[in-house]
Simulated assay, not measured.
Amino acid sequence: MEMLDRHNVGIVLLLRPLVVQEAGVTEVGPPLCVANTHLLFNPKRGDVKLAQLAMLLAEIDAMIKTCKAKGERCNVVVCGDFNSVPHMPLHQLIITGELYYQGLPARMISGQEDLSYKHCSRQLFAPLWPSSLGINDLCQYTANTNSQTCESTSQQSEKRQYTHEFMLQLRYCPAACVRPQDLILIPGVTNITPDISGDDQQHDKRFRNVLRHTLDLDSVYKHVLPRSGLPEITTLHSEGGVTVDYIFYSPKRDFAFDQKGTKLKLQVADCCF
């Protein structure tokens, strides 16, 4: 599919601490999932960055679920070049686990460059990617697919392929209801507002204008040097220096329960690796 034919890389490993003795090899601790990636650089294509990130998170989630099925807790380390500066939407999605993107300009996802002077900008609307990718808005593989299915689907053809049912689901989505500024006025045709009150079509429930993930991640970096207060820099070139490289990890948290029995996060006690 065209949206995902950009250059990127992602590696996900499941590591287990082992002890080799004369009696044999034994496991001595919980598994550790380590992921590394390099997302697209293009500052204008935040939609592609989010799709690439969702694929990485879906792979991590699938690996964690295999551990949970065995009753094991799996800690996570995610690192790499995310081509996004701190506190911008892509970074916030990783840290907070949630991003409301409805109508958000694609250039704002990473914050790499100030492109606000450009009037024409690609905006983000649901769904962000075709259903054939097999990933929902929780950055998880859907029940009827897996990573191998998605990989084989993307390699079958370089053309975008959508089913008739999928196109019907987009009939009244926000992007389809936006009226182009240069639309020619044709009475009775282009001056009619879509009426969705009588539409019985079941819309795609995978996307609700919010991306989420269930991984509890924190950043190793604080993004500000403790003494000087200057921003941290991980890459330096002729146009300046910024932070685009990160190490995220599963923190060990202390929990408490409120009167309703809801689990509350208190503080980060220590790293889990």
Score class of each variant (00 low, 15 high):
Val9Arg: 15
Met3Val: 09
Asp245Ile: 07
Val20Met: 09
Ala23His: 04
Ser219Val: 07
Glu98Asn: 08
Ser197Met: 06
Asn83Cys: 09
Leu90Trp: 05
Tyr246Arg: 12
Thr235Met: 12
Thr193Trp: 12
Thr149Phe: 03
Ile95His: 02
Asp199Ile: 13
Lys252Ile: 15
His87Lys: 02
Ala143Arg: 00
Pro194Val: 03
Pro127Thr: 09
Val268Ile: 13
Leu99Ala: 05
Asn136Met: 07
Asn136Ile: 03
Gly198Ala: 00
Cys271Thr: 09
Cys79Met: 14
Phe125Thr: 01
Val85Gly: 04
Pro105Gln: 01
Leu56Asp: 00
Leu53Glu: 11
Lys159His: 11
Gly71Gln: 02
Thr142Leu: 13
Asp258Lys: 01
Ala106Pro: 03
Leu183Arg: 08
Ala35Cys: 14
Met55Thr: 07
Ala54Val: 05
Gln123Asp: 05
Lys118Ser: 11
Cys177Pro: 03
Ala269Tyr: 15
Ala69Cys: 06
Gln155Gly: 03
Leu138Ala: 08
Leu39Lys: 10
Leu211Tyr: 03
Asp200Met: 06
Gln201Lys: 08
Arg45Pro: 01
Tyr246Glu: 06
Ser238Ile: 04
Lys65Leu: 11
Gln140Phe: 01
Phe82Arg: 01
Glu165Gly: 01
Pro180Gly: 05
Val48Leu: 14
Leu217Met: 14
Pro89His: 06
Val12His: 12
Phe82Ser: 02
Gly241Pro: 08
Asn8His: 15
Ser157Gln: 13
Val210Thr: 15
